Deep mutational scan, measured.
Amino acid sequence: MPGGGPEMDDYMETLKDEEDALWENVECNRHMLSRYINPAKLTPYLRQCKVIDEQDEDEVLNAPMLPSKINRAGRLLDILHTKGQRGYVVFLESLEFYYPELYKLVTGKEPTRRFSTIVVEEGHEGLTHFLMNEVIKLQQQMKAKDLQRCELLARLRQLEDEKKQMTLTRVELLTFQERYYKMKEERDSYNDELVKVKDDNYNLAMRYAQLSEEKNMAVMRSRDLQLEIDQLKHRLNKMEEECKLERNQSLKLKNDIENRPKKEQVLELERENEMLKTKNQELQSIIQAGKRSLPDSDKAILDILEHDRKEALEDRQELVNRIYNLQEEARQAEELRDKYLEEKEDLELKCSTLGKDCEMYKHRMNTVMLQLEEVERERDQAFHSRDEAQTQYSQCLIEKDKYRKQIRELEEKNDEMRIEMVRREACIVNLESKLRRLSKDSNNLDQSLPRNLPVTIISQDFGDASPRTNGQEADDSSTSEESPEDSKYFLPYHPPQRRMNLKGIQLQRAKS
């Protein structure tokens, strides 16, 4: 015994090295194993092979420090690593049964499904019991997946119906949107047309105001020219009257000059006056001389005659003075006559000038009245044309509004008919989907599995289990394997941990 101590140590070291070499393959693929292994699927088989106990299973599945599946799978690998070579062998058998691809990844061999460990530990009855539990578990999982698949199909059909409904609603909204954009385009076109009409109206108003201003300026210029013409006519008439007055005065002077006595007659009258003065002096001298030589009687007679002569001279002087006064009065009367005649001529000139001015103003008033009548006639014609244009424009607008209203009513009726057609199509689609759903539900009910399987069917299934373990590994792997896509769409199922009653199965096998 003492001599065998070193050999035992060498043997233990060799086993430990082999164990480390075995687990080295697992550690190399630890990331892939932790990512894809579900500990809840492996722990029943590991407990059946007595590699882990209930406490280890509870620690792996329910520990609060292991929230994710990767953490739980890593903890399970750590626990199996502590179990040595047996933990490695049982772990590979569980991978061979549940995850053939991972088994091939770790060992590089094809899975054979021999279950040597569980046969050694529990015997064939334990293997049968384990396989029966796994089959029931798989059936329950398949039923749950079928239910989930039916629910998802129903949800899918519902979503398809909602999608069709949303599509129809979208078509309806597109119809309304198209109608909205069309009405918006019509409104924009009408606004552009309105702005264009306003611009045209403004341009016409500006043109009309400009023409009116030009016409008023032309009328004012015409009036100024007419006033200048009238003033020139007035000056012409005044000059004609002055010329006529000057002509009359010149004719009067000419007549006075023609009626003036001649120079010879004046000289002859002056000679006669001198001769008479000479004779008068001679007679006076004779009379003076006679007075001195005459007697007293003759002197008395001469005195009487002288007195008579003096009286006659006085009378004559009075007559001469009277004649002079009369001549002066006649001259003054002639001057007054000439003055009055001049005033008369001036008044006649003024009267004729005023008459011509009156005629001029009368003509001017007639011209202004004619212009006013023409302006009123043009204004009435413009008003009439404007009223006709406004009436025609309003009539066109009324007809346009009428046609637009008819078009809008027809478009609304068309839209309502399209919407009604879309709604009826939606109703038809809904009815078809309901009919299809009812038909599929009836087919699913016919094809669904019963909840409680008979014992004979279970025994028959387990009677055929042994050949399947040898020759149909691919079928078992397809039913027991969970793909990543299934984990996305289906909830994980945790079967209840219970042991099955095998009395009925044993009785059935005894009868057979």
Rank of each mutant, 00 (worst) to 15 (best):
M65V: 03
D53E: 08
N71Y: 04
H81T: 08
V120L: 05
L46V: 07
R75L: 05
K145L: 11
S68V: 05
L46N: 07
N133F: 15
A73D: 00
N62H: 06
H129K: 08
K16Q: 14
E134L: 11
D146M: 11
R86E: 15
E54K: 10
E7R: 13
Q48L: 08
V60H: 01
P67Y: 13
L15C: 10
D146Q: 13
L46D: 07
E57P: 04
K83F: 02
P64C: 14
N25Y: 01
L66R: 04
P111D: 01
G84C: 07
L127F: 13
L76W: 02
Q139W: 14
E13S: 12
G108M: 14
N71Q: 09
G4A: 12
L22Y: 08
H129W: 15
K16P: 07
P111M: 00
I52E: 08
L46Q: 12
L46A: 06
I79G: 03
R75E: 04
P100A: 14
P44G: 11
L105M: 00
T128Q: 07
L77W: 03
Q140W: 03
S34R: 04
K83R: 11
H31L: 09
D56K: 05
T14N: 07
R72Y: 05
V60P: 01
N133E: 01
D9W: 12
N38A: 07
T43C: 03
H129F: 11
G108W: 06
Q48I: 07
P39C: 03
A63H: 15
R86G: 11
V90R: 15
D78A: 04
L102A: 03
G74A: 02
M65A: 05
A40G: 09
P67D: 03
K143T: 10
D146S: 11
Q48K: 08
S94M: 05
T14K: 14
R75D: 01
A144G: 12
S116I: 10
T128A: 09
L77Y: 02
Y45R: 06
Q85K: 13
K41I: 02
E110R: 01
M65Y: 04
M8F: 07
C49S: 15
K104A: 08
A73K: 01
R113S: 15
L127V: 14
A40K: 06
V89R: 02
R114S: 12
I52Y: 04
P44M: 09
F115G: 07
V135H: 14
G123C: 15
L95Y: 02
C49V: 09
E13Y: 13
T14D: 14
P39Q: 02
R114K: 04
G4H: 08
D146K: 11
G84I: 00
D56G: 05
I79P: 03
L76H: 03
P6E: 11
I37L: 07
F130C: 15
S34K: 02
E18R: 11
D58N: 13
E125L: 14
G87E: 08
R114T: 10
H124L: 07
A21K: 10
A21V: 06
K137F: 06
F130R: 15
L42H: 10
I136Y: 02
M8V: 14
Y98Q: 06
K69F: 05
T112Y: 14
E121K: 14
A144S: 12
G87C: 09
S94V: 10
L131P: 02
R35H: 08
R72P: 02
K83E: 01
A63D: 06
N38G: 00
D20C: 08
T112V: 13
D78F: 04
E93R: 15
R30H: 01
N62I: 05
D146I: 10
T14W: 14
M65S: 06
R114H: 15
Q48Y: 06
L61Q: 06
D58G: 09
V89C: 09
V51N: 08
E18N: 14
K143I: 10
S68N: 03
E19Q: 11
T112H: 15
M32A: 07
E19M: 13
I136S: 01
Q48P: 05
K137T: 14
Q139N: 14
L77K: 03
R86T: 14
S34H: 02
N29D: 01
R72W: 03
T43V: 13
L46M: 12
N38L: 01
R113N: 06
P6S: 12
Y88G: 10
M32L: 04
Y103A: 05
T128V: 05
P67A: 11
E125A: 08
I37T: 03
E121R: 11
V90T: 10
L92I: 08
I37F: 04
K109Q: 00
M12Y: 10
L61K: 02
H81N: 06
L77C: 01
L46G: 10
I118H: 14
N71I: 09
E122W: 05
T14I: 00
K145P: 06
L77T: 02
E96R: 01
I52V: 11
Q55W: 11
Y98G: 03
D17Y: 13
G108P: 00
S116M: 02
H31Q: 07
D9C: 12
Y88C: 07
T14C: 05
T43P: 09
E110I: 02
I118D: 15
T82S: 07
V60G: 00
D78R: 02
D53R: 07
D17G: 10
L138K: 11
C28T: 12
K109V: 00
L92G: 01
S68W: 04
Q55E: 12
E27S: 00
I136C: 02
E93S: 02
V60S: 13
K16Y: 15
V90D: 00
A21P: 10
D58E: 02
V26W: 00
M12Q: 05
D146G: 12
V119S: 12
D78G: 02
Y98H: 11
D56L: 07
I118S: 10
K145G: 12
K41Y: 03
L42D: 04
T128F: 12
E59G: 00
P111S: 15
Q141A: 11
Y11S: 09
E27A: 02
L22M: 10
I118W: 15
P44V: 03
D53W: 10
P6N: 09
R75K: 07
K109S: 07
G108D: 00
L127P: 07
Q85V: 04
I52G: 09
L138T: 11
L22P: 08
E101L: 04
K109M: 00
R30K: 00
Q85E: 14
H81C: 10
A73T: 09
E121V: 08
V90A: 11
R113F: 02
D9E: 08
L33T: 03
D56Q: 07
Q85C: 12
E122R: 05
G123K: 15
F130A: 15
D53M: 05
D17I: 11
H129A: 11
W23E: 00
D10V: 11
K109A: 00
P64S: 08
E110K: 05
L131K: 15
L76R: 02
